[in-house]
Every structure is written in C-alpha cells, then in structure tokens.
C-alpha cells in the first residue's frame, strides 16, 4: 500500500514572529524555517507503517518555492522513499493546495494520505478535509492512533471531551494530532542518503487549475499586549483582591 504525505515549510516553532511595520504581513526575512510539526508527525507515521510492513512506499509532496526542497529532504531523511515538489512562488490558500493535491492523488493513487491537522503559520486546519471532499475519500482528522485493518483503517480522534474512533474505507485521508507519535531525529547517514532519493519537480501552473486567490489579506497587526499586573505577597491578599478589586469570586 502506498502512502502519500503532503508537507509544508513553515516558520520554526521556536521563533517568535514579528509583524512588519507597515502591517502588510508577518516578517519572514532571515527567519529560521522548518517542516511544520504536524507534517513531521505525518511523515513519521507513514514511515512507521512502512517499517511495520503495512505500507510499501512513502511519497512526500510539498507545494511552494524552491526552498521547500529543504523540508522535502528532511522528510526523505526521516524515511520517505521519494518526493514530488510542486513549484510556485505564490502563497496559495488551502482550497487551491487541496486541488493540486487532488491531482497528485489521482496520479499516485495512494491508499492512505496522511497530513498534519494544521500548519502553525496560517492555523487554518482545512487542507486534509478539503482534499477528502475533492477526492470523495473519508477522513479521520486529529488522529491519535491509526490502525490499518484489511480494506479499512480505524482512526482514533482527539475530540472535545475525549476520544472517538471511526472506521474508514480505504483509500482514506488522515490528519495528525500531537499525540500520534514522537518523530525521530534523522541520522547523518540517512541525511546523506536522502540527497540521492528521487525528487520530481513540477510547476503548479502546469496542472491546469485556476489558482487565483479566494481572499485578500487586508492587514496583519500584532495582538493586543496584555500588561503585567501586580504581585501579591500572600494568599490572603490574592483572595481579597479577587473579591473586591477584580470581583470575580464572592
């Protein structure tokens, strides 16, 4: 069974983002970039399925400018077999990304597509579900456990209030939550090997899809700062202030 893993290059999660002075967007110049953490979990899950003998091939795909090949190589070093880079200079919204991925799914015919549940830049949480709709596949979002069983996959999902398990017909879409696994660190020999793994580059414009944007970014502002309050010395003082000053307890 073939597993397809779409991944995204994003700002490193340890970097504190800053808004540009003209409020046009966040400033990503000279900022450390990385594979989106949820995408990394997706790669790890696919590689584990291969190590367990369930998957036969793991293909990663990323959409973006040339630099996203760095993250593609990271995924290959983690154990993916080959990669597809769909090159574009534009920042595409989730629906257009999903439409490009739909074409990849049609060509590659994977039995399972594993994606991160959201990227930590736009925080949309959309692409997996949209790809599922466009391909007519069932979806197991926010997965904390994935078990392939014959022509079905059982996905345990992180939902409000606990866990929910659903059974999906294959082929299916899975999006990863944090607790699905702990991604490995790539070893040096694997990083060297990754450089020789096949990487197929295609232009987004060649897919014959209308990729025009569906929304306009009007402005980006820093969040309202919350200023530090007062330090209280004792529990008595805290309780007193909560009662009389903040009036949040009685």
């Amino acid at each position: 069974m073939k597993v397809l893993v779409p991944i995204k290059r994003v700002i490193d999660y340890n970097v504190k983002v800053r808004v540009k002075p003209d409020n046009s967007d966040v400033d990503l110049a000279n900022v450390k970039m990385a594979i989106n953490p949820f995408c990394e979990i997706a790669v790890e899950e696919a590689v584990r399925l291969k190590e367990a003998g369930t998957a036969s091939e793991v293909v990663v795909v990323s959409i973006g400018d040339k630099k996203c090949q760095e993250q593609i190589r990271t995924a290959l070093a983690l154990g993916a077999d080959r990669a597809i880079h769909i090159e574009t200079e534009e920042t595409l919204d989730s629906l257009n990304i999903a439409k490009l991925l739909q074409k990849v799914v049609e060509e590659e015919a994977p039995q399972l597509v594993i994606l991160g549940k959201q990227s930590i830049d736009s925080d949309n949480n959309q692409t997996g579900q949209m790809l599922a709709a466009l391909t007519g596949m069932p979806q197991g979002t926010f997965a904390s456990e994935v078990k392939v069983d014959g022509d079905k996959v059982n996905v345990t999902r992180e939902v409000d209030g606990g866990l929910q398990t659903v059974a999906l017909n294959l082929p299916a879409i899975v999006t990863t939550d944090l607790r699905l696994n702990e991604p490995r660190y790539a070893k040096l020999p694997d990083i060297m090997k990754a450089k020789r793994k096949p990487l197929d580059v295609k232009a987004a414009a060649d897919f014959g899809i209308d990729l025009s944007p569906r929304s306009t970014l009007v402005k980006v502002a820093p969040p309202a700062e919350r200023s530090a309050g007062v330090t209280v010395e004792t529990i008595d003082e805290l309780v007193e202030k909560l009662k009389t000053e903040a009036k949040v307890i009685s």
């Binding site: 700002i11 504190k16 983002v17 808004v19 966040v26 919204d93 989730s94 629906l95 930590i120 830049d121 736009s122 925080d123 949309n124 949480n125 959309q126 949209m130 569906r214 929304s215 306009t216 970014l217 009007v218 402005k219 980006v220 502002a221 820093p222 969040p223």
Partner: peptide, 28 residues
C-alpha cells in the same frame, strides 16, 4: 475557501482571525 476561527466581524465579508498561534492578528 473557508475562513477559520474568526475572532471578529468587520463587515459581511471581512473578518479578523489569529494566525501564528495568536502572535499576529490578520484581517481577511
């Protein structure tokens, strides 16, 4: 397209939403 997780409504077609884990606020 979907506009996710809005925290404000500017008008019938313009919305405010947090991005980058709330470290920036976008108007879309």
């Amino acid at each position: 397209a979907q506009i996710s997780d809005i925290i404000g409504v500017e008008s019938a077609d313009t919305f405010v939403r947090p991005i980058y884990a709330g470290n920036a606020i976008a108007t879309v």
